[in-house]
Write a protein that binds this DNA or RNA. Structure first.
Lengths: 164, 164
DNA sequence: CTTGGAAAGTCAACAAGGCTGACGTAAATT
DNA sequence: AATTTACGTCAGCCTTGTTGACTTTCCAAG
């Protein structure tokens, strides 16, 4: 095995290994979104609705602008999604009491039900994968993902971690 | 720590831990695609072109239908992308000699150059992440991703691994 | 040799979900 | 009073996915 002066084996940094990681991300992300996509297909909603529902569930009472910064889309794009969710009675939007310009978002009971269905499916796959590989591998998984994030996204991710 | 009868700590399978993994995938995938997206923006191409270029580079001479099964899109969708790449001289399409119905796809020199630029950027981020966390974590990362894939996708992934 | 079916390509139409730009309104801040 | 902020909305555009229908080419089985 090739060793550096520091005694560290660096074969895991070869282009070949990196490419495998890239392809693993590509194929795994497909699996990651497959189950929710299947549930949503035919019911007028898509991945964008899922994301909004997820993060509203995650941070009840969050504002539109906060959601915008988490999702990284334009307000026009988010608004289209949010409007249908509100019209359909999955999301409730309330004027802020301390700052009345803000809208605070909550899932309704109906919204909670869909969220539950979606996250159950997504967690089931995740749980099977975690169980198959064990806690050590899971720790590595999360470490690499976190290291791949843009700093701004890592901040968002860690804010969510603490909050929850 | 909670332990099972088998003596195994299962705290890593809580809904909370699973949710963190889900959010990590979401934010990390953004980082994963960010650099190629930046390169491609403004040059008429998008993520779909990147994917086609990647897998043609990966398996030179691959056929259209093979590419279809890897990418998981319709031939109409792939064809639109492929057509522009061929027109722009990034991809060469050759009638098969043994089976002339098939088209064998190769990157031209120009295509190789763009592939290089894109994969350099993507690998750079990957390498930084890998280096930051070490080989042990990287192994876990790959194990979890592989376990998350649909069986069909895992087959594709492993075929690529061997081939390369 | 004929024909059935696979592989590839093409046209048309459509939808989701991104984007920009412009504009309006209410509320907070200065 | 003027400006800025948060939000909503209208209009229009792009990429990338979809379905359906159709053609051309060509291999292989009958």
């Amino acid at each position: 095995m090739a060793e550096t002066p520091g005694g560290e084996n660096l074969l895991f940094l070869t282009d070949e290994q990196l490419r495998k990681g890239i392809e693993a991300m590509f194929f795994a992300y497909r699996g990651f979104t497959a189950d929710p996509d299947r549930i949503l297909e035919g019911m007028d909603y898509g991945r964008a609705h899922h994301r909004a529902i997820h993060f509203i569930h995650r941070s009840p009472g969050t504002t539109v602008s906060n959601l915008l910064s988490i999702l990284g889309v334009t307000k026009q794009s988010l608004n289209r999604v949010l409007r249908t969710l509100i019209e359909d009675g999955l999301v409730r939007s309330e004027k802020g009491k301390v700052d009345a310009r803000e809208r605070h978002l909550h899932l309704t009971d109906k919204g909670q039900m869909l969220e539950r269905e979606l996250s159950d499916a997504q967690r089931a796959r995740m749980r099977a994968a975690y169980r198959a590989v064990g806690p050590q591998a899971v720790q590595g998984f999360r470490q690499v993902l976190e290291a791949m994030m843009d700093p701004e996204m890592r901040r968002q991710y860690n804010r969510l971690k603490e909050g929850g």
